[in-house]
Write a protein that binds this DNA or RNA. Structure first.
Lengths: 210, 210
DNA sequence: TCATGTGAAGACATTCACAGCA
DNA sequence: TGCTGTGAATGTCTTCACATGA
């Protein structure tokens, strides 16, 4: 696979979400300008991003929405379904589970984990919750490659170690702590406190500027 | 205020979090190298970032942890406490409320909002929940400048409009939809579906590479 | 005419590498 | 010696601007 920048992938995912949200799919072609407006980016940016997915407007003016959607999905998704596990059944864990479940056919949350015995060995909305000790066996058996860490900060590193040990290739970390994981494993941090602090900072800036 | 890049602010916030997590504060100086390691960045990056906050290692070798923490906080925080509102008391709304509450003295969640009458006119852990119609009056009265959108995608734009109309200067959007808001209002998107898709994509890449 | 695709410029971010200092 | 602070180099991302095509 050709290598793509982080920023580009984020936008490609955004373009796809925009197209998915157009129901029914418009029969009119969509222009780089219109997509750009919907995505809050520059039109040249859209065209440059679309270059990497190898979809070309078929000598037509603009892009054919269905074909573009197909091309985006082909690029963004793996051939097989990606197995995902959520560790920590708190508010964040539940939120992710609810948001992702059934919304993306190529992403499947196949297991939940929690330290609290009250929460484990149950089935939530079609997905089973396991004890932390079962991480290695379940991750392997269910071919899970993405782990989501939604446990308290103090437990996060230990959970990350176990996930990596069990073979996940990427971690999405919601705990407010910097994880240290081996080279080659993808890590994305989404700490909510940091997010609020950042918005607070730039809100102040915009106030000062006028 | 000097203008700082998004990336730099994110790292400054991270450095502060790292220092805050060291309790008790170490009496030894901390070096750019050690902070870099903890933050998963390059040492030169740390030094360059610290340049912008105007803290200098006082002709000492390394940085004095307490002084650095103070300098970081002075830069990151406003003088006054920043008022925050959370709209949408679902899993995400609750998660943010719980995470932020009491953890950052300069960030105060002053109001919750929800469309469901069952959830409003109650006090959750010291913070009152209001109906959506009360956004304008409450935002103004409580001097709220940051709004967090944790409602379903279909409602998000309408909520954003009301928040902006009421005077907030920044929005943190957890809904999986692109908001359109006036120039000058800061917007940060944190959609969870996009996050999982991104991690899934790069996990696959790392697998292929080896 | 009007939109795409893209070379080239420009803006921005990271890293190197070293002078200077204690 | 071993650190910081920073000029300069490098690397990455965004935007301009225009040739090309229908």
């Amino acid at each position: 696979m050709t290598d793509v920048s982080m920023k580009t992938i984020e936008r490609l995912i955004l373009y796809r979400r925009i197209l998915l949200s157009m129901t029914p799919a418009p029969s009119e072609p969509i222009y780089s300008h219109s997509l750009a407006k919907l995505a809050n980016v520059n039109a040249a940016q859209v065209r440059r991003d679309l270059m990497v997915i190898g979809y070309s407007g078929t000598s037509i003016r603009g892009y054919e929405p269905n074909a573009l959607l197909r091309a985006l999905s082909e690029f963004i998704d793996a051939d097989e379904v990606t197995g995902v596990a959520v560790v920590g059944i708190g508010d964040i864990g539940r939120a992710i589970f609810q948001y992702v479940k059934g919304r993306r056919p190529k992403l499947q949350i196949r297991a939940l984990f929690d330290i609290d015995p009250e929460k484990t060995d149950k089935i939530y909305d079609g997905c089973r919750a396991y004890a932390i000790d079962e991480i290695p066996s379940v991750i392997r058996k269910k071919q899970i490659t993405v782990g989501i860490v939604s446990v308290p900060a103090t437990a996060a590193q230990e959970i990350a170690n176990r996930l990596v040990g069990a073979g996940v290739r990427g971690i999405l970390n919601y705990a407010p702590v910097q994880l240290h994981i081996p080279e080659g494993i993808f890590l994305e941090n989404r700490d909510m406190i940091t997010a609020v602090e950042k918005v607070a900072f730039f809100s102040r800036q915009s106030t000062l500027k006028g």
